[in-house]
Amino acid sequence: MFDLGYTLQIVILGTVFLGAISGILGTFVVLRNQALIGDALSHATLPGIMIAYMLTGVRSLQVLLLGAFISALVAMFALNTIKKYTTIKFDASMALILSGFFGVGQVFLSQIQKTGGASQAGLSRFILGQAATMLRRDVYFIVIVALVVLLLLIVFWKELKLYIFDENFYKASGLSERFISGLLTMMVTFIIVIGIRLVGVILMSALIIAPPVAARQLSNRFYLNVGIAGFIGAVSGMTGTYLSATRANLPTGPVIALVLGGVVLLALLASPRNGIVKRYVQIRIFRSRIKRYRKLIHLYENPGEVNLDSKEYTYFINHDYVKVEDGALRVTSKGMKRIRSIKAVD
């Protein structure tokens, strides 16, 4: 279909896997109402990357990612501590950790830039990502990590699902909360860490948040949500990468994020289930009908309580919704039908 160059094929392989696994994992995160933790953690990787580089002097992806991983775990630990033992609100602590860690990372970056030679150029790539310069073994690494995470998700599917829907019930079942939340954090950190090299720390959150949000509009079933989110992530990854290759200077990460944003918008507006447009129309119809037939419903619910010569019923009597029977107002079968149709706008 398309004539894809070898490099592009490799990069697409990477973004498809990354998109799919972040979408899948993101579903768990977003349903736990922790969408922005990914954002905080990905920013928090920066000092780890810089320190790893300073300590080893190697620019190998794996070494830097190990640093990123440790740094993100420290951030997560800090977040948990603040949440557990202080009255500081979680969003505020996230904001500070996100930005403060990033600042620490920048201090190290500026130190490296002062002393380092050409090699420092690679480090700032982590901020916005640079998929085009990926090496084949980098991509294989991503694929492997994605598969491992997927495997873990399958193995602990039941526990994770329970934990997300009913934390208290999960705890009451005697399962270890520490283990499952730790596992989830580990996996998210893993994905963020492999993702930042591709799309950068800022747009990594798009990959985690957007697919689940779009999927949520399309289905109410959990496993379908996970599947759809993975699919959206993969397709957006592919489309974004391909589009960004069509023109010079188009950065991959932002284009993927743009595609994802478009998918979310589309799903929100036009989902056959709960699309905003459809719902807006339905609510409008409902409201106007309620206003029009309020008195009719009032009669239906309070038979015999309405005064016979109440002027408000003239319209309904004229339209055969209401008739006078045994000296009282009665809702006719036509009126009943009308009342029923009001609720069933779908």
């Binding site: 798009a206 949520r216 200077n249 994020a257």
Partner: peptide, 26 residues
């Protein structure tokens, strides 16, 4: 719309708008 939670809304909106600006700039 009550279809998207608060933090997810933040994440979706800002990454979308931000990526537009990065694309325009680059």
């Amino acid at each position: 719309t009550r279809r998207v939670k608060e933090d997810a809304s933040i994440g979706v909106v800002f990454t979308f708008l931000f990526s537009i600006s990065v694309i325009i700039i680059s």
